[in-house]
Design a binder for these strands. Structure first.
Lengths: 253, 253
DNA sequence: CGACGGCTTGAGGTAAGTCAATCCACGTGG
DNA sequence: CCACGTGGATTGACTTACCTCAAGCCGTCG
């Protein structure tokens, strides 16, 4: 009987018998089962192996500080839970079993082997992809959990950090040449409503968006208004290196 | 002067001098510039090289059939446009310059080299990651473009395909043991509203969700109600192989 | 100067949320 | 075998965040 991962992958590629055998073996070798409502991987976990769902149903989810839960994806047999292992230090969300769920654990050895053979460019590609996904997930949270004002605050705060990281922010302001229409298309709002919320943020003294430039007046309050939690950007390196990034984005995290 | 990609990546890792040199070279070797409002990569394009933004501002976006635009991400210097090259045949969205934007093109040679050295498992990981991202992007479109009924229809239709692909759907029905509360957490709706919309879908004769089981009564109409476009799942192989998948999900695409 | 793209403001409409009661299926213990 | 508790589904009445439509404004560019 074919395993669900191979079935999925065969939708787009043909495997050599060797590849298929490897995949089949990985998918059946080291199994583990979780009861319903149990976390397969908890938010913040550092995982050294990859989990492949082989039966059951799980969710990729995040519990917000206010207790609300955002489900970002349903995981069914054949789905991988935590490819982020490759490059990111820790999970920025949880994987939770909805029903009894069993996973195949792709052994740490295989993973570290792949990691060590990885060139600088490949690693760069993975990191870029993984953080992009994390940003996409945050955008889903946006819509589920944040209202219009919070969403805009979040976008502007995130962009400040991203421009800081590449050295293109001057202090707390940066050039961001978009129209309010485009802000609307990005946040799922109308330009009319974007306009009104920008006024609110301005009168609150949090930030100004004018002349294609964002000026953050009160970073702390803006962060609060955005209900911003920096972990999803994965900018934190090990503690003894932290001073290096402090110069760029550290105080925003 | 450090290039933005290296600056970004150094937030999480240290490079060997050799790696850094390679990255710096790739980021400056083959440059190309696009005027504002031009597509850097069009929806449906098949791309053989990777685009790295080095200056300017672009969006990752999708134009819907009704003409509305959903911006899924802003791309700033240091961001990669199309890592999907690795495994997916074609782009399922566009990259558009907002202002004049220049990109470094990572040459096709480098990319194919990486591709050929890729083992079956690595390829599987990439494909899984890339389609997961595509599903995440579709979820963003959900919130920007679809109302509650369409969103639920979309979720149920997508799950039907996914269960079909792994051989776990019987005809047009599948077991989906979630509560209406959980459907709400996934779609960004309240359980109350989920309930009402499920009733609508039922009375319209499109589908029934009862006893933890989804039964699609009218797949064609459900697909229409969901405004479902299958390209983001990347299940289409080359034309001469298409008959192979017809048995599983083909008629749904 | 007029045209145009983008911003601003106002008046009304609607999809979805909130709150709260009721109902139903079930499992469990007396 | 029935009483009860519990988690989930259902329904109704009311509220609200955001949308739509539409007009007016403002700066810029040909």
């Amino acid at each position: 009987m074919a395993n669900p991962l191979t079935m999925k992958l065969e939708q787009f590629t043909s495997f050599s018998p060797g590849d298929r055998e490897t995949l089949d073996r990985l998918a059946s070798e080291k199994l583990n089962t979780w009861a319903a409502k149990r976390d397969i991987i908890a938010d913040g976990d550092h995982v050294g192996q990859i989990h492949l769902v082989t039966s059951g149903l799980a969710t990729r989810n995040k519990i917000m500080p206010d207790g609300k839960r955002q489900i970002m994806a349903f995981l069914i047999p054949g789905d991988l839970c935590d490819v982020e292992v490759f490059v990111l230090a820790r999970m920025d969300h949880a994987i939770t079993a909805l029903t009894e769920t069993t996973c195949a654990l792709i052994p740490a050895g295989t993973v570290t082997e792949l990691l060590t053979n990885m060139g600088g460019l490949t690693k760069a590609l993975w990191w870029s992809t993984m953080t992009d996904s994390a940003v996409l997930r945050e955008r889903i949270i946006d819509h589920g959990q944040r209202d219009a004002r919070e969403r805009l605050a979040h976008l502007f705060y995130e962009m400040l950090i991203r421009y800081r990281v590449i050295g293109m922010a001057q202090d707390n302001s940066y050039s961001f040449p978009v129209t309010q229409e485009e802000l609307g298309d990005a946040t799922g709002l109308t330009s009319v409503h974007v306009n009104r919320m920008l006024q609110v943020l301005r009168t609150e003294g949090l930030m100004i968006f004018s002349g294609r430039t964002v000026t953050v007046l009160d970073p702390v309050s803006l962060k609060q208004a955005a209900r911003f939690s920096p972990d999803y950007l994965h900018l934190q390196r090990s503690a003894n290196e932290r001073h290096e990034i402090a110069a760029r984005a550290g105080d925003l995290l």
